[in-house]
């Protein structure tokens, strides 16, 4: 079984995000970069499928030079080889351009299942997996919490509002991972040593033959709206404070 996993490097969830003074982007200095957490579930699921069915796991990542760290992390977890799509012209890639680059790299690989995180925690757009599936002409199973593959068919569970849906798809297909799919393993020390010797191809946009023209364009970034200072309800008696809170919610905030 040929498994491909798309991974992206993103700021750690605890990272403070500061904007450049002109609002053109974020200040990258001082940020701790990690593999996007949803992509870790995707890598883990691919490794489990390989352990069960045999085959190989290829990691594909689009990003600047530092993205190589996330590729090495995935290789240390047990993936076999990597492709690093690195090109300054792709630094501001939108979802369509990013998916085009990933699709161009994956087309030349044998692939039964392509796994992605359901979204990246930096731009939070959640589009790349589906666009990639469309560009590869394969079906998609998105935001998946449980996956079973047998007899050339993928069976998956996803949570929708108020229900769980069980889906089935022919292979090849794209699966995007939701939290809960599995518990990602840590890279072992021998794994980390071995990862250094695993092959990683570096490709640029020209080698992939893709257009880098973005269709969704950020014109300005800004800090979140400030909330007005809140009111701390004073007093020592829990009952009195509870009554005052309920009164304020009814009479002042008008939300209950």
């Amino acid at each position: 079984m040929h498994l491909v996993v798309c991974v992206k490097q993103a700021p750690d969830t605890e990272a403070l995000i500061k904007l450049k003074p002109d609002g053109s982007g974020i200040e990258e200095a001082g940020i701790k970069w990690v593999m996007n957490p949803y992509d870790e579930y995707a890598v883990e699921e691919a490794l489990r499928l390989k352990e069960k069915n045999g085959g190989d796991v290829t990691i594909v990542s689009l990003g600047p030079a530092r993205a190589m760290e996330s590729i090495r992390t995935a290789l240390a977890m047990g993936a076999d080889k990597g492709i690093h799509i690195s090109d300054p012209s792709l630094d501001r890639a939108d979802a369509f351009v990013a998916a085009s680059a990933l699709a161009a790299a994956i087309k030349s690989l044998p692939h039964d299942i392509i796994l992605c995180g359901q979204r990246a925690i930096d731009d939070d757009s959640g589009q790349v997996g589906s666009i990639l599936a469309e560009l590869l002409g394969v079906p998609q199973l998105t935001i998946i919490m449980k996956l079973e593959v047998a007899g050339g068919v993928a069976k998956a569970v996803k949570a929708i509002e108020g229900a769980q849906v069980v889906l089935e798809s022919a292979l090849p297909c794209v699966v995007t991972a939701q939290k809960g799919l599995n518990e990602p393993r840590y890279a072992s020390l021998p794994g980390i040593m071995k990862a250094k010797k695993k092959p990683v191809d570096v490709k640029n946009a020209a080698a992939l033959g893709i257009s880098v023209e973005q269709k969704a364009r950020i014109i300005k970034m800004m800090p979140p709206p400030q909330r007005a200072a809140g009111k701390i309800i004073q007093g020592d008696d829990p009952e009195a404070k509870a009554r005052e809170l309920v009164r304020l919610l009814r009479e002042e905030a008008k939300v209950i």
Partner: peptide, 23 residues
């Protein structure tokens, strides 16, 4: 940007070869 809408809209971005602002 419901669960269904997220899935459908992003596939449409691919089919229509356009861009989308999510959520």
């Amino acid at each position: 940007a419901s669960v269904q809408g997220k899935d459908l809209s992003s596939r449409l971005v691919g089919k229509l070869a356009t861009g989308m602002a999510s959520d």
